[in-house]
Write a protein that binds this DNA or RNA. Sequence first.
DNA 1: GATTATGATTTTCC
DNA 2: GGAAAATCATAATC
Length: 379
Amino acid sequence: MDDQTRMMSGLAGLGGLSQADVGDPDGVRKSLGQPQQDIGDILQQIMAITDESLDEAQARCWQEESPAHWGGSDDPTEGGGAGGGTAGGGLPLNFQHRKHALNCHRMKPALFSVLCEIKEKTVLSIRGVQEEDPPDPQIMRLDNMLLAEGVSGPEKGGGSAAAAAAAAAAGGSPNDGSIEHSDYRAKLAQIRQIYHSELEKYEQACSEFTNHVMNLLREQSRTRPISPKEIERMVAIIHRKFSSIQMQLKQSTCEAVMILRSRFLDARRKRRNFNKQATEVLNEYFYSHLSNPYPSEEAKEELAKKCAITVSQVSNWFGNKRIRYKKNIGKFQEEANLYAVKTAVDAASVSAQASQANSPATPNSGGYPAPCYTPDGRL
DNA sequence: GATTATGATTTTCC
DNA sequence: GGAAAATCATAATC
């Protein structure tokens, strides 16, 4: 059954109602001029009003209607009949009257529901497919990032968690209490504040605009068929528009956090010398394994634990030490002698077996360490 | 303030 | 991918 047939059959069903069923408010009788208004005529009236623009209607009514008809109206919404015969909006009274009569008609909701149904199944059904968008992955990424950085969601002490993570990543202690750390927190809190303030503004504007549009559509739904579903769709469209603005805000915030974070990490590059004990442990290992100063992963972990530094710091230290020793053996000779003696003393105090266990590769224990190169030119 | 020492990063090589 | 080599950046020393 096509829409037109369905509409007509629906209307035919409505037409079968008795006058008592339909009712007949006085206003309608007066305005339509017939005690038993045919349903088709009502439909025609509706179509006439809804199809034509206000300007067209106004122009037509001004031409068609004689001034004698402009006398007055029982429509309280009109501006009264005296002095000119037009309603508040400048529309002829007849036009206003007819509209009001239709609004009051008991059949209007049924007719409008049929029209809404037709409308729903034609134009809106096409849009409906496009409107069911999945959540935007970009927004999800931005949201996750803002959440992780402590900008959105519950406050993490001004982003101290992120700062701690950044500090840990840089190999430093998160409890440094450095100036950079507090600066980072303060600036992140500032970004957070601006973000929330702007977000609130957007949400408020969105809410206000949505309400405005909803009221407008509800008002218009008195004179043209607008289903609640259509209003919902319109609201969804508005929300999508505002969410695209929100995405820009989120992007800007993410960029600001990234810049701040990179500055913070740069600041963390400020190196701090390892403490004396850590340097001693590392040097001891280096000079006692001078023939093969390449600690295994296990040895690195052990050294890192002993020195309270990270494994990568141990790797860095050995990398630097190897290259610098190789470049200037003479300069390091004294230091090498010192640690050789120390190692010898230590070795004497512990069992030879323990000494072996401590040195997976053949250690240069005892004697003066001398540079030793591997065939490929390495130490 | 210049110099040196040293931890970290980047580039290059195998 | 790991190590060497070069380089950067800052702490420490004079």
